[in-house]
Design a protein around this nucleic acid. Structure first.
Lengths: 340, 340
DNA sequence: ATGAAAGCGCTAACAT
DNA sequence: ATGTTAGCGCTTTCAT
């Protein structure tokens, strides 16, 4: 059916070895012969067979990328850049979405193992799955979240620093009563960001009021409700710091529910990545993860491991604060039931 | 290094055929033997080798999915669902982003050809590339956009209907002076949506004012500027209908520039897909593409072609109108320089 | 400068 | 019920 290297060889009147070497530039071939081969290739519409090549060479030139939530703009962008960078190095990327399900993640990892990808970039959900992958001997780089004691490097943003950046911004604007909404406490990112908040409080010599730390909850509804309640109380916060993209959604819904507008009634800082498609969200002050650098480092670190066959160094990158229209200086004195 | 089927066979004291058949359930094996084989597999950590299997079977159980802009929530969601559905049918999905570049699209298509994917779902950029793929004999299904005279089925939303839905909504609210922002006129989606607008005008017996149709431009800046200018004129529109996700961004920026707020000063209807991460955009009235159904149909149509080895029927799906907080009834009489 | 041929790991047709 | 073996298309070693 489809022409093989044999067909090309016959058409060009050479051996398959010569065709292979011509295609791959892997040894000298007579320019004249080379032309004949290329002509045959063109004429037959030959296009190689990477499956056969992979089998023979024992490597697939393919990387796996597993993200935990493809609809999260951070991962969308990460995927897009990982793909771009990998292809610069001659690697394909196969891409999958675990959707935060450990079971789905396991299936994906098994499929990647069977597929013999040369390495995997994993935004992990369950530590167990990551360890399974390490055990299977496939080079692995974790991204975004990390685990303790795993024999694989990670590329993450400095989440505790990010939390401090966001907090300091609000503090500098005079906010002293700030609500926080967090994501799943099991995730290292959540833990690190809360740690950053505690550090920031300690640095200011003030106590950390646990009652101001709200769980966004699985769907974000819980956080929206709790925030609405908090904002309706008498000691209502002047600002909200949402510690993840999901938490920000939850916050927006909560504020909407109690008819608070931003930044008039309350300042808002988000954490994650603003997407060009986010529209008004572009105006929300965000602690931004350095996603392009993270993508570059993921690929670099993974390729390093593939080449050197050893565990590479981990990388921690600094997030940045992007100002928006969602925060403002707290009013010097709060007037009860004044204004409109 | 890694155990092969041979190692398993030796460990279990059977032939490779038995191991293969045990793994694939492809002929009867004695339950007792089967147990021995499975034990050996577990003990050795054997995990199959889909490369070798693909080479032997002449099919890869892999589909290619090529989108034109992964950061567009429509494609993100499409990708996510295509992957989910394909895996239900035992197919992997390799995924790539052409980013609207014909050249990049060509490279991707060549890679997919070399990779011997069993079929391709393509959100096309350049007709020429799609035709190249058809010529190579790989089953192809187009999605979102379509071309005339290509031997491949397409799965699209009824864009002319969608445009009529959006227009009718605004018309019903009393809007008679509506600005439209469109994307690239070369795309079939853009053409179809504008055709829908013309039809809607004709149905109402009113002329279509070309000066109200703005090009969002490549980056969206041009559209933002033109809209701002239009809105600053004396005959300023009471509503804006953005004909794509990009166009909506452009519109929002334009309205922001001339300090128009929505829906107070102007009603807005978008076209595409609202992402949960879009936040305030969730409140924008949208003509929504039926992305989940589109994903299902893409996979169905493609698998049909793979199995039956013939060109399948195309599918046109109806979009829906999702109401939001971004539109409202036009004021019965417009007061010049009143209110604020 | 080129060719012959082994063999990557697996499946499946053909034995037994 | 199980085993033997050819061969998928390619790369690469060893010859020439």
């Amino acid at each position: 059916m489809k022409p093989t290297i044999k067909d090309v060889a016959k058409a060009a009147g050479v051996s398959v070895a010569t065709v292979s070497h011509t295609v791959n530039n892997t040894r000298k071939v007579n320019p004249e012969t080379r032309e004949r081969v290329l002509a045959a290739i063109r004429q037959l519409g030959y296009s190689g067979h990477s499956i056969a090549r992979s089998l023979r060479r024992g490597q697939t030139s393919t990387l796996g990328l597993v993200v935990s939530d493809i609809e999260n703009p951070f991962f969308t962008k990460l995927a897009s850049h990982v793909q771009r960078i990998a292809s610069l190095h001659g690697y394909q990327v196969v891409f999958a979405n675990s959707d935060e399900h450990p079971e789905r993640e396991r299936q994906i990892i098994d499929a990647l193992t069977t597929q013999r990808v040369d390495g995997v970039i994993l935004a992990p959900v369950a530590q167990e799955n990551a360890e399974r992958l390490v055990r299977s001997g496939i080079p692995l780089t974790l991204v975004n979240r990390h685990f303790a004691g795993i024999r694989a490097p990670y590329v993450i943003a400095d989440d505790s620093l990010g939390a401090r950046l966001g907090f300091d911004h609000l503090w500098t604007l005079g906010h002293r009563n700030i609500a926080f909404i967090r994501g799943d406490i099991e995730r290292s990112t959540t833990k690190d960001r809360i740690r950053g908040l505690r550090e920031a409080h300690r640095a200011r010599g003030i106590p950390f009021d646990e009652s101001l730390l709200i769980d966004a909850g699985h769907s974000g509804d819980q956080g929206a409700a709790e925030l609405a309640e908090l904002m309706s109380g008498k000691q209502r916060p002047t600002a909200v710091f949402a510690l993840s993209n999901w938490a920000l959604l939850s916050a927006i819904r909560g504020l909407h529910r109690c008819l608070m507008s931003c930044p008039a009634d309350v300042s808002v800082v988000g954490y994650g990545l603003s997407n060009p498609y986010w529209m008004p969200a572009a105006a929300i002050c965000m602690v931004e993860q350095p996603v392009v650098t993270m993508a570059e480092e993921c690929v670099r670190v993974l390729l390093e491991q593939i080449k050197d066959e050893k565990v590479a160094e981990s990388v921690v990158l600094p997030p940045t604060l992007t100002l928006g229209d969602s925060t403002r200086r707290v009013e010097p004195r709060r007037l009860r039931k004044a204004s409109s």
